[in-house]
Design a protein around this nucleic acid. Structure first.
Length: 417
RNA sequence: GCGGGUGUAGCUCAGUAGGUUAGAGCGCCAGAUUGUGAUUCUGGAUGUCGCCGGUUCGAAUCCGGUCACUCGCCCCA
């Protein structure tokens, strides 16, 4: 136990947890496909440069959280710390601007070297949604609608708040940025150490600070809404109107920001207060500047990522997909055993879930069948074999009946409806 | 990366003025019942007391370190 432990911040997914993951993923996929999204699966690692370019050299993810290593060929590669960069790269690599718009969904592991905590692991799983090539606000609305539908179908919509903001187009955003630098620049002596650094590299991130001294300053800091130009105002209005029309509740949070330059317009987070410090369950935004920054054609983009582990903690037991109850075959004696395998095979070919009670006397095997949650036990011994029948016991009712082997599949199929 | 809490059987946990072979419930295995399952009864195995080192005649218990989990900071999904 001490020796064979998993790497810090990684977990085995089995049992109840695996069922939760599967349940959530299936709902996610069905919602995404209903919106016309198709599956994309990009490699789990990329050239390190891909992430550095997209995430920026100042972000925490790039500067201290990436799993980066040199492969045997001397290439610097990185386990993906987020989805968007890989999908954007795939878009460019595959020349997908020819087939725009592209609506994708994806699911898989993500890696970040962070201090593990509840809801925060080093290998965790995200579901991802992206729309590429749609600069219109309709994409923003659809992407939010997918998130909202997903949460509702997971039965947790009521416990989650959508916080929404607009970062504006580049013009609005730059004006705001300058105003922030001017404002906080006047209080340098009062800013926390972290925020001082942000002032130079990423002034909008100061708004995220939880430092008490900072918070007082932030209270009176300029508001982004005052810097929106007409286009930005119109765009934001359209997004808000669109989600109101389909009944999505939201709260405007004008302190919700994304520090990186390629973000614009819509930014949002779905958060819950039920997971402690790690409250964001889905987060995303519009990144119209990203493709160009990566060296591709200028292409609008918007998307979000959802944390599988966090959602898995929130959903109710009732939602879980129960696996089908098996029919368990209990042979008695060596001859029956080989025949049992054949019978099992035939039943399985007919779509029936069949398990075997592998060993022991009849009592033991029945006990086994019960433990496996079987609906029926199929008993085959010498007496039955001689007459080409099987004894089929309904484990819920305790009744049993002799059934001819060639009728077994149809009998069970009917019984188990 | 910083600060606090925790670490005993597969699971949930008892077990401190340091004292023989470390406990309970659940679960697991076997038998009562060699052709009939959830009950019941009987019996059994649970284990480097997270790991390494120190103090001591003697450490699950005290001390130091380390690893992991956990809560907060940070960051985010």
């Amino acid at each position: 136990m001490a020796r064979l432990q998993p790497v810090r911040g990684t977990h085995d997914i089995l049992g109840d947890k695996a069922i939760r993951f599967r349940t959530i993923y299936n709902i996610f996929r069905s919602v995404a496909e209903r919106y016309g999204h198709e599956e994309i699966d990009t490699p789990i690692f990329e050239f390190t440069e891909t992430f550095k370019r997209t995430l920026g050299d100042t972000s925490d993810v790039v500067t201290k959280e990436m799993y980066t290593f040199e492969d045997r060929g001397g290439e610097q590669v990185t386990l993906r710390p987020e989805y968007t960069a890989g999908i954007a790269r795939a878009f460019i690599s595959n020349g997908l601007q020819q087939v725009m718009p592209c609506k994708f969904y994806s699911y898989g592991p993500i890696f970040r070297y962070e201090r593990p905590q509840k809801g925060r692991m080093r290998q965790f799983h995200q579901m991802d949604i992206e729309i590429l090539g749609v600069p219109e606000a309709q994409a923003d609305i659809e992407v939010l609608a997918i998130a909202s539908d997903l949460l509702n179908e997971l039965g947790i919509g009521d416990h989650i708040t959508l916080e929404l903001n607009s970062l504006g187009d580049p013009e609005s955003r730059n004006a705001y940025r300058d105003a922030l630098i001017a404002y906080f620049g006047g209080y340098k002596s009062q800013l926390s150490e972290d925020s001082l650094k942000r002032l130079e590299k990423n002034p909008m991130r100061i708004l995220d600070s939880k430092d008490e001294g900072d918070r007082a300053l932030i209270e009176n800091a300029p508001r982004i809404g005052d810097f929106y130009n007409d286009y930005t105002k119109e765009f934001f209005k359209e997004v808000i109107g669109g989600i109101e029309d389909i009944g999505i509740k939201y709260e405007i949070n004008d302190r919700l920001v994304r520090g990186l330059d390629y973000y614009s317009h819509t930014a949002f987070e779905f958060t819950t207060d039920q997971l402690g410090a790690q409250g964001a369950v889905i987060a995303g935004g519009r990144y119209d500047g990203l493709m160009e920054m990566m060296g591709g054609p200028k292409t609008a983009g918007i998307g979000w990522a959802a944390g599988m582990e966090r959602l898995a903690e929130l959903i109710s037991e009732d939602l879980l997909e129960k696996s089908a109850r098996p029919v368990v075959i209990a042979p008695v004696g060596n001859d029956a055993q080989s025949m049992a395998m054949k019978i099992a095979h035939d039943l399985r070919a007919g779509g029936i879930v069949v398990d075997m009670a592998y060993r022991g006397n009849v009592g033991k095997r029945m006990k086994r069948a019960n433990k496996q949650g079987a609906s029926h036990a199929v008993l085959i011994g010498e007496a039955e074999m001689a007459r080409n029948v099987a004894m089929v016991k309904n484990l819920d009712q305790g009744s049993q009946e002799e059934i001819a082997l060639d009728k077994l599949a149809s009998y069970l199929a009917e019984q188990r409806l």
